[in-house]
Write a protein that binds this DNA or RNA. Structure first.
Lengths: 179, 179
DNA sequence: TGACACATGTAACGTGTTACATGATTCG
DNA sequence: CGAATCATGTAACACGTTACATGTGTCA
């Protein structure tokens, strides 16, 4: 698992794009970058407090309505420095993520096991749909392949699509080899 | 993260293939299934104790030399039942694993950023080599595509190769789009 | 006899998930 | 006025890594 508290740098990166509230950060983990990292609000709010205590971000209060006070966070120059250090540092290459389904297949030794067909079909349905969803996103956000701006966003979407496509192809290939 | 203690089932699966010691289990996580799950011995030994207390595995003492006593674990019928329940249960599809490098790219907005080339090259070298290594393993273990036996092993190797290949292609494509 | 692999455990810490807890705003 | 969403926090627990700790067997 992550060891060097990656979360703090992701938050710095997101805040460096634009000032956000904890709530908005939480949503960001469910959309764009959700394909490659996730975090709950229960992890985000304490991390924001630590980053602020550390002088890497500051918040300004924003009142809406009568009472509601939300904290909008922005990176300080110290935060930008920390972010740049992270970006510049060598990156430990991703080693195979955990895949419960792959393990189940590993433990089913026979290509004629009666459970295989159903298992493969179920996963294939899911990943095929996900793939379609990602491609729709790509078409919506980069209609004319104009990804010179927001290059990073384009790259992660492309990454996710390739990953899901490869997954579906693996499942397909496995299905075809059932005895 | 994993929520239902997947580790216990992986151990049951491995022990169901053959009786093993904790040390041998630890090594198994570094070879075959290491592409899709990892665990240290500090996690494995306590889990073995819990599984035995639960009646899902039993150990027999094995002495080598004068004093050295190793515990060789085997699954009980209760353990086999638990394993089969896990295999038969619906599998939550894998949602994007965490990828620190992808996130770094996400935060580098411009295709002309001077850091990009070096970063991409570094990752590409790593994943290309890994890909080659996996393909060598495949060639060594399944020389004649005779994967009717050990089908599961073949599938996870194939999966790993496809994943790494897709990763390299993504990096390659990204490199070609640098401004 | 020294290095390395075999072998088994525990402790401390950090990260991540789920649940608990509370309240405001907006829109139908 | 009720439901959904916005908004922020804490607590308990599960999972995973790193470090600590100890000792044996084998081979050069």
């Amino acid at each position: 698992m992550a060891k060097r508290n990656i979360l703090q740098f992701i938050i710095l990166g997101l805040l460096n794009q634009q000032a956000r509230t904890g709530y908005e950060l939480t949503k960001a983990f469910d959309s764009d970058i959700g394909e490659f990292w996730s975090a709950q609000h229960s992890q985000i709010y304490p991390q924001l407090q630590r980053l602020e205590a550390d002088g890497q971000i500051i918040h300004s209060d924003e009142v809406s309505g009568e009472k509601l006070n939300r904290k909008r966070y922005a990176v300080t120059s110290a935060g930008q420095a920390a972010l740049n250090d992270w970006l510049a540092a060598d990156t430990e290459p991703t080693i195979g993520g955990r895949d419960e389904f792959a393990l189940k297949l590993y433990f089913i030794k026979s290509p004629s096991d009666p459970r295989l067909q159903r298992m493969l079909a179920e996963q294939q349905a899911f990943h095929t749909q996900k793939c379609a969803h990602l491609q729709a996103q790509m078409a919506a956000k980069f209609p004319e392949r104009q990804h010179a701006d927001d290059f990073g966003h384009y790259l992660v979407l492309d990454h996710a699509i390739r990953r899901e496509t490869a997954y579906v192809q693996w499942l397909q290939s496995a299905s075809e080899q059932l005895a």
